[in-house]
């Protein structure tokens, strides 16, 4: 399936069914990362229960240096 991740169209294997799977797919599950899924900001504990579908728009953001 194809997702729009951080503005780019990215092909993802169909075995990725949830937001948790998606983070595992990119090896991000141990990182401090925040997920916005179809304009909804997800709390950590809802990653597992949030199903991913073709065409979903996902933003993956994190903290970077800043003043």
């Amino acid at each position: 399936m194809e997702l729009v991740i951080n503005g780019d169209k990215i092909e993802i294997p169909n075995t990725v069914e949830t937001v948790s799977h998606l983070l595992q797919h990119f090896e991000l599950e141990q990182k401090v990362i925040i997920v916005e899924w179809n304009k909804t900001i997800l709390e950590k504990d809802s990653h597992q229960g949030t199903k991913i579908c073709d065409g979903d728009r996902v933003e993956l953001v994190h903290f970077v240096g800043g003043g």
């Binding site: 951080n6 991000l28 401090v32 925040i34 993956l60 994190h62 903290f63 970077v64 240096g65 800043g66």
Partner: peptide, 19 residues
């Protein structure tokens, strides 16, 4: 203080000061 930015998903091992 920190800023919030999009992550580069293709470089997950990118070092991050927070870690």
């Amino acid at each position: 203080t920190f800023s919030v930015r999009r992550m580069n998903v293709f470089e997950p091992s990118q070092p991050n000061f927070l870690e």
